[in-house]
């Protein structure tokens, strides 16, 4: 599996999160058969493969790096978030499929073909894996269940790692990095947009004024950037770099930095668009069109913020 996928698992503390057999039990509860890959995971570990030693070494170095820096990253408050009332209940794993799960399952089925349609790895087999991870997670954390947006996160994880680690990584994202984002009311998402708005007002007041004049909430532009962690809005390579930092820092700081960088680069265009009632026409283009694969540009901007 991709080195990046391995790094993300270390950043997300998958080893610490993982509990033996839980994923498989959830699949059974969801009425899913585990893929051969899930069943094999354990055996393969015991056998040890050719690159085992080398990979273990990489893992050890990365893990020590995470340990060394996790204290160094100041807690800027973005790690804690407003939680939905509903998500306060502890995630439990002992829920049998009932009416509400059937509803969730139906929704997931409906959204599978609408997740990166046409991507070669999300064919029949890839889609089955995505359904299993999302269904298992919905049962694992019924307070969140399944909320649209999570499909994109799980799909991206599955492109870089196997099902079970993807399941635990999804948990790390939903519970640690984005708590309250995918709950009943998505309150934390609204709060972050309000926070972003205050940043925009203080750094780019003309953009803030243009948004007000056009009657456009900032969330109309940036809401889905955060909810999908940019996977639908930036070229892949750039989005992956944002995820690297997001998972490494385990705070949402990089989401804000990237948003402010995008707005900074496009401020003139947004303000001019606003002058002729074309603010949204301009704003919807600011994420994908700009970079042409050379994403370093926006990242350099983001780090400077």
């Amino acid at each position: 599996m991709a080195l990046r996928g391995r790094c993300w698992q270390i950043f997300a503390r998958v080893k610490e999160r993982r509990r033996d057999g839980v994923f498989r039990e959830l699949l059974v509860a969801a009425g899913e058969s585990a893929s051969a890959e899930v069943l094999e995971t354990k055996d393969r570990k015991e056998d040890g493969d050719e690159n085992g030693d080398e990979e273990d070494a990489v893992e050890r170095v990365l893990a020590s790096l995470v340990d060394a820096t996790c204290t160094a990253v100041p807690d800027d408050g973005s790690r804690t978030a407003v939680r939905d009332d509903a998500s306060d209940s502890t995630p439990c794993t002992a829920v049998s499929p009932d009416t509400s799960f059937r509803r969730v399952r139906k929704q997931i089925d409906k959204d599978l073909p609408r997740t990166f349609p046409g991507h070669p790895l999300l064919d029949g087999i890839g889609r089955d894996a995505l359904r299993r991870v999302l269904c298992a997670y919905a049962l694992h954390n019924p307070a969140v269940g399944y909320c649209q947006g999570m499909n994109f996160l799980a799909a991206l994880l599955l492109l870089l790692m196997e099902e079970e680690p993807a399941f635990w990584c999804l948990g790390a994202l939903v519970e640690d990095v984005l708590p309250g984002y995918y709950g009943n009311t998505m309150l934390a998402s609204a709060v972050d947009q309000a926070v972003l708005r205050t940043f925009v007002d203080s750094r780019f007041p003309r953009v803030g004024a243009a948004l007000d004049d056009a009657g456009v909430p900032l969330a109309a532009v940036a809401g889905s950037w955060f909810l999908t962690l940019y996977v639908n809005h930036l070229p892949w390579e750039v989005a992956l770099r944002v995820w690297d930092v997001l998972l490494f820092e385990r705070t949402r700081r990089v989401l804000f930095q990237t948003a402010l960088a995008l707005i900074d680069v496009n401020a003139k265009r947004i303000v001019e668009g606003g002058r002729c009632d074309r603010l949204m026409e301009c704003a919807v283009q600011i994420a994908p069109a700009q970079f042409d694969g050379s994403g370093e540009f926006i990242l350099i901007f983001a780090w400077a913020i």
């Binding site: 609408r114 349609p117 809401g223 909810l227 026409e281 704003a283």
Partner: peptide, 13 residues
């Protein structure tokens, strides 16, 4: 026939 799911809002004019 298939398109990405709408997250939040989208816009057209």
């Amino acid at each position: 026939h298939v398109h990405d799911l709408t997250i939040g809002v989208e816009f057209g004019s």
